[in-house]
Design a binder for these strands. Structure first.
Lengths: 247, 247
DNA sequence: CCCGTTTGTTACAAATTGTTGCAGAATATG
DNA sequence: CATATTCTGCAACAATTTGTAACAAACGGG
């Protein structure tokens, strides 16, 4: 078991990161430490249990795929003895896990590959709700997302321009935008985009995504705000450029 | 038998949670405890009886599916010796249970998967009526549901626009709206909608639900309030957009 | 049994998404 | 630097999915 409890100026709480991939453990740990959290790590179910026994943990970040045990199982096990907030890390195309994960007692989930910024937002939200004692009362509040002055309401599925004009999005445009927002500042391949945005299976030469991007861009250009939002990366895919703020 | 009587600052009463699924017992217990109730739990009919004998219980939350005994049976049995309020937990597609459950002496029911918020609302309502001593006089008062300024009275089956105009709904429209309200902000497939809204079995190409949605929408558009309420999700189903408040 | 109301069916219109082709941009090649 | 090659943008069209009017069947109250 690794315990990585480097102290930080302001202590926002003890977080336990559980993942069998050492890279991810390290990445997440460093990031959270920089934001004032104490971080413990564990790589399997056994060390998870031990850490929970030995330390007072405020929240757990848990990969759904652990060697030997599913994250859902782990989730239930934890829930038998504790109501500590849990955020699941799910790989793409594991929507089933996300649903059953929430049923299994998780409080929120983040899809890999995730932006640390998003993870942080979710963590804060979960901790806030946990302290308020109403973790199960309110659903995960992933509803308002801001970028470049735009406001996107995921609950109402509406998009407002910086000028406050309501733009309406088709289902496909909505799915695509959500995908970008959840993986902002990262180059997404056409393949990933199609999968995340729930489009139907992609032949290698499928240009559907290009057309959908084109349609989304047209709507995002309506604003005076001249900044480019979705940038093409030749031979790779597309990136969503603006800084994204959750909630 | 488990007894889980952690004390809470304000004591709102002793609740007995009966379910064979440990996860649900735990989830519900924690939640109710956080809201100031003493919680006892039982996993089968025998421990239910024992708990009732040993403690003064103010309300029972009872899963209809218990190993060895139907919740309805349990309900009747309890009623032979007590008039304690009972809330049934029913899985979906157990509509029969809901009806016969109320006949069997239950005071209200909640359909799984349920929001803890809704359960709490029902529990409060049942306790309030119980203390007033008029539990059998008045039907379950799951009556006021608010969304986007609209007021829906399930008892009278009436819907009022934000302007206060009364809209009347047919049975089918009522069922559909209730389904949406109980599962707001969630994409519901046509299949689920048909099942929940008690329409007759659905062939894969049945468009009945679309037509019913269309009819409901027409009534919901009467208000000046231009906001869209039910949104179509292509290839998936429909979502009810507004935030819903039970009271 | 009649009649008004509600619900189910069907057909066609409208909206959305997928496909293709070509023009133009970006990059590689000579 | 000129040209060839590859890749992307997007208009135009095709296919799919949804909206809803219009009609038929089923229901319910006298």
């Amino acid at each position: 078991m690794e315990t990585n409890t480097a102290s930080s100026p302001n202590d926002h709480g003890n977080i336990l990161v559980v993942d069998d991939d050492a890279d991810i453990r390290l990445l997440v740990s460093k990031f959270l430490q920089r934001h004032g959290y104490h971080v413990h790590t564990a790589s399997d179910a056994r060390s998870l249990r031990e850490t929970l026994k030995r330390f007072s943990i405020d929240a757990i970040i848990l990969d759904v795929m652990l060697p030997g045990i599913s994250g859902i199982q782990a989730c239930r096990t934890i829930r038998q003895t504790s109501s500590v907030p849990i955020i699941l890390l799910t790989a793409r195309s594991e929507e089933d896990f996300r649903v059953s994960g929430l049923e299994g007692g998780a409080d929120d989930y983040v899809t890999k590959p995730f932006s640390p910024r998003e993870l942080l937002a979710r963590l804060r939200s979960v901790l806030r709700r946990s302290r308020g004692g109403d973790l199960n009362t309110t659903p995960p509040d992933r509803n308002r997302i801001l970028f470049d002055g735009w406001v996107f309401d995921t609950q109402r599925r509406e998009l407002n321009t910086p000028e406050g004009v309501l733009i309406d999005l088709s289902t496909g445009e909505y799915n695509l935008l959500v995908t970008f927002l959840e993986h902002a500042n990262r180059v997404l391949s056409r393949e990933m985009l199609m999968e995340f945005a729930k489009m139907r299976a992609s032949d290698p030469f499928d240009r559907t995504i290009d057309v959908q991007i084109s349609r989304l861009r047209r709507k995002l250009e309506i604003s005076e705000n001249a900044e480019q939002i979705i940038k093409t990366v030749r031979n790779a895919g597309y990136v969503f450029l603006p800084k994204v703020t959750f909630e």
